[in-house]
Every structure is written in C-alpha cells, then in structure tokens.
C-alpha cells in the first residue's frame, strides 16, 4: 500500500469542513434566540413555532408537496417508458430529448417554458404550469436510472417469457416490471426530491399567484431574513435527506446519477 501524504489528508479534511460548516451554521442558528444570524444568544425553539404559524409558508409547503407528488407520479410513468424504450430499441432522438433538459442551465428550460405557456397555450401560470415544467426535468432522471438497471440484466429472461407464450404486456407485467421495480421506486423518490427542491424553473413558471417552499425561502432571503428561514431550511434538509437515503436503499445509481 502506498503511503498517503499527510498533506493530502489535511487538504481533504479542509474540503469536508468547507462542505459541512455552512450547513451546520444554518441549523445551529435556527435555534438561536435572536433575530440576527450573528451572535449566539441562547437556545430557543421559537422560530419553529413562528414557522408553523406562518400561513403563507404552510400554503407554500402544501403546494410544493402537491406538485412533487403529481410530478413524480407522471414523470415516473413516462420516464420508465422512456428508460425501457431507450434500452430495448436503438433510439437516437429520445435519449437526446430526455437528457438535454437535465444537462442545460436550468434558466433556459425555465424561460422557454414561460414563453410557451403564455404565448402558445395562453395558460395562466400556476400549479399546472409548474407541474408540467417539473415533469420535463424529472422524466430524464427516471429514464436514466431505469435504463441503468436494465443494462445489467440478462436478456434471456425476456426471451424465455416470450417463448412461453407471454404477450408483450404480460411479459412487462410479470417479468420486466418486478425486475426494474427498485429503479422505478428510486426514480420516483428522486423525482419527488428534485421537484420539491427546484427553485430556478419554478421561479419562471409559477407566476405571481402560486408559491412553493423554495420560492418562499427566496423571497424571505431577499426581503427580510429571520431565523425562520433557518428553521424551514433545517426541516427541508431532513425531508430531502430522508428521501435520498430511502431512494439509495432501492437503487444505488441515484447517488452517482445526479451528476
């Protein structure tokens, strides 16, 4: 075994500190008994009480959850189809279509959808427009996870099902679906997380009437910062963390797939 230099350990340790210190500060200050995020005054849970009485915040949370449920369900359905199709058929266009929105700067998808909704569909921006926008970027993610799962699989199982007289639908129901289920569930959970966390695309497609948690956090950061932001951030961190841990339990690719 090659000896690893102490400098390397030190550098890596500093990078880990750089990664974790800021988030720790956010969490710690959510319990600080002061309006300012500056000095530690004393422990309080009052910002969490403020948070749970903030009706705008609660409405935003409800919107976020509704959109995330809708977007993850539809994106999982379409994304699974796309993943299977990309694996089974030699397609050139579909992989490009589902992966590009994930690879482009988010603002581009946001503004082009804004234009499209208003100019072409004459849609009033709101829950529906946000829902559609979220499906657009979640779909590719599900497709990638599902395809990755299929790639490692033995093709002969599907042939066997066909030889035994199963229709394509039966094969899907009895063979393909149970096999890819972990990836489908992981994709759904990741879509939920991506949707509930999205700021940029939501920012452009939500219009004035509808708010989501990230939009609410943004306006608080921009207008009046209080430790209530820290409190909501801490809770949101716990939710996403739980989701990701759960998703990773079903399929490991989600941990690497985000890049």
């Amino acid at each position: 075994m090659r000896k690893t230099s102490h400098w390397l350990w030190l550098a890596a340790l500093l990078v880990y500190l750089f990664l974790y210190l800021p988030l720790t500060v956010v969490v710690i200050y959510s319990f600080n008994d002061s309006r300012l995020n500056a000095e530690w005054v004393g422990f309080t849970s009052r910002w969490y009480k403020v948070l749970f009485q903030d009706e705008e915040m609660i409405q935003a949370a409800i919107n976020s959850i509704l959109i995330a449920i809708g977007a993850s369900l539809i994106a999982t359905l379409l994304g699974t189809m796309a993943g299977i199709a990309m694996h089974r058929y030699r397609l050139r266009v579909l992989p490009f279509l589902v992966i590009t929105p994930v690879a482009m700067p988010e603002i581009l998808l946001g503004v082009s959808l804004l234009l499209f909704f208003i100019q072409v569909l004459h849609l009033t921006l709101g829950l529906l427009s946000v829902l559609i926008a979220h499906i657009t970027f979640c779909l590719g993610f599900v497709a990638i996870v599902v395809r990755a799962r299929l790639t490692g699989m033995d093709e002969s199982i599907f042939e066997a099902a066909r030889d035994l007289g199963a229709t394509p639908w039966k094969t899907f129901q009895l063979v393909t679906l149970p096999l890819i289920m972990p990836a489908v569930i992981a994709g759904a959970l990741m879509s939920f997380t991506l949707s509930i966390d999205d700021f940029v695309i939501t920012f452009f497609t939500a219009g004035v009437g509808v708010s989501t948690l990230p939009l609410q956090i943004y306006s608080m950061i921009k207008i009046a910062v209080t430790p209530e932001v820290n409190a909501v951030s801490t809770l949101l961190m716990l939710v996403t963390l739980g989701m990701i841990v759960l998703a990773a339990k079903f399929d490991k690719t989600v941990l690497r797939g985000q890049g």
Binding site: L23, V25, I217, V225, S233, M237, T240
Partner: peptide, 10 residues
Amino acid sequence: ASNFLIRVYA
C-alpha cells in the same frame, strides 16, 4: 442534498 437556496443562504 439540501436545497440549493439553503446552501447559498448559508
């Protein structure tokens, strides 16, 4: 995994 805005806010 934490929200992007939270990381900026930190």
